[in-house]
């Protein structure tokens, strides 16, 4: 089991990265855990080559992204149905009316902001969240996203625009001050 011990430390080093990408793309913790498990099983099968590879991070990210997109494609109809439903529900989701507590420390505010942003991201409909994550986190171009998701370029741009608008509205980003406000009621 010495080999597995080496793999376990490898996994510990990369599991947060893989899981983060999966949860941001899929929006559901259970699905993200399933996909992360599959990613590491594949990594285990190729561990001999991967262990010493300098591009292991890229490999893991690519496999995670592909598995997430496959997962979304496989459940596309169900996903579309539920995303339409959740979009309607989101408008009067009480979570967005919960006031963010006033804090005095800058560090605490930052943590709050990150949590709010993370939740806001997860609450986006999949059709908006996926291209946004691919654009901002994975730094793919609009054209690459259109090709990956097999949708038109104009739809990619519209979905990303709507996602940003939604995040901005919810976070109350202020361009006048150049600061993330988001304090008070979201």
């Amino acid at each position: 089991m010495a080999e597995f011990d080496t793999f376990e430390s490898f996994m510990l080093a990369y599991q947060n990265m893989v899981y983060s990408l999966a949860i941001r793309l899929l929006g559901r913790e259970a699905d993200a855990e399933d996909v992360s498990q599959e990613v590491f099983l594949r990594a285990y099968n190729h561990f001999a080559e991967l262990a010493s590879s300098p591009t292991v991070g890229g490999w893991l990210k690519t496999v995670t992204r592909n598995l997430c997109l496959n997962h979304l494609t496989r459940y596309r109809n169900r996903w579309r149905f539920f995303s339409e439903m959740s979009r309607e529900e989101d408008s009067d989701d009480p979570l967005w009316d919960v006031p963010v507590e006033e804090t005095t420390g800058t560090a605490l505010e930052e943590v709050d902001q990150r949590q709010v942003l993370e939740i806001a991201l997860q609450k986006l409909p999949a059709a908006q969240r996926v291209p946004l994550v691919l654009y901002h986190f994975e730094e793919l171009s609009y054209e690459e996203i259109a090709a990956q998701l097999r949708i038109s370029l104009s739809k990619v741009k519209t979905d990303i625009f709507r996602a940003r608008e939604s995040l901005r509205r919810k976070l109350k980003l202020s361009m006048e001050t150049g600061e993330v406000l988001g304090r008070g009621t979201l």
Partner: peptide, 29 residues
């Protein structure tokens, strides 16, 4: 403002993977 949003998103730390993930992978292997 998208630049600010981009920076805020990029500044998000990695999410912590659930503790059960390691055990699940070990069991599956």
């Amino acid at each position: 403002e998208w630049d600010l949003l981009h920076r805020s998103l990029r500044a998000l730390p990695d999410r912590e993977a659930p503790r059960s993930l390691g055990d699940r992978v070990k069991r599956a292997i």
